[in-house]
């Protein structure tokens, strides 16, 4: 496994074991930077608009805009430094076993996939690990921030797969569409996080409801 992929795998794992939302956001930012680096290595001559769009997607949106948007939102809400509510993985043996088990499963799965199709194993292993860890987070967290991090893990793993898989780059129009979708998704995440304070059920919903369209 190349050092860059090993670092990326660590960046998927660290937020699960360090109960700080700042660390989680720092890891998400670093994931974006690494994806940008992988994209740069794939096309070091910066040929065509596609290379620029890919850099905007990975570096600006995933590496900077996304963590910054979530950070400012949590800062505004004075989220506690240590994760009580916006935690990533519950601190117990079961969750940790699930996380490590997922990584092991991903590596086993990638081995069989590599054997059957002759592709390089390690990128597939990291992609599968990212997706499975994302699912572990989604299945163990009920808080919005934790689930958001799980979703971003899955999205970043898919972006890595796209980098390693693509026999040909997407055309500019399609790539621009994907970029806009990512930007809107980030805006939506921030919006949800900003509304987070009022999501507690109070049992009076039907009372509170006014007329609806």
């Amino acid at each position: 496994m190349s050092p860059i992929l090993a670092i990326l795998l660590c960046l998927f794992l660290i937020p699960l074991f360090v109960s700080s939302w700042r660390v989680a956001l720092a890891c998400l930012a670093a994931q974006g930077f690494i994806l940008a680096w992988i994209a740069y290595r794939a096309n070091p001559q910066w040929e065509g608009m596609e290379a620029w769009l890919s850099m905007v997607d990975h570096l600006l949106l995933r590496g900077i805009a996304l963590p910054f948007a979530l950070y400012t939102s949590l800062r505004t809400q004075n989220a506690p430094y240590r994760t009580g509510s916006p935690g990533i993985l519950p601190p117990n043996i079961l969750s940790w076993t699930l996380a490590f088990g997922s990584v092991l499963l991903a590596f086993n799965f990638s081995a069989s996939l590599a054997r059957a199709s002759g592709v390089e194993r390690s990128p597939i292993a990291v992609v599968a690990s990212g997706i499975l860890l994302g699912f572990v987070v989604l299945s163990t967290r009920t808080g919005m921030f934790g689930q958001m991090v799980g979703l971003i893990f899955i999205e970043n793993a898919i972006a890595l797969f796209e980098q390693t898989e693509s026999a040909h780059a997407q055309p500019v129009g399609i790539q621009a569409g994907l970029l806009v979708t990512t930007a809107l998704t980030i805006a939506l995440y921030r919006w949800f996080l900003a509304m987070r304070n009022g999501t507690k059920a109070d049992g009076l919903t039907e009372f509170l409801e006014g007329p609806t369209l």
Binding site: Q147, L188, F192, G198, T199, A201, T205, L208, E209
Partner: peptide, 14 residues
């Protein structure tokens, strides 16, 4: 103004 609808919408996005 309806907290449950925010939760439902997040679930939908998720």
């Amino acid at each position: 103004d309806v907290p449950d609808s925010r939760r439902a919408s997040w679930r939908y996005v998720l």
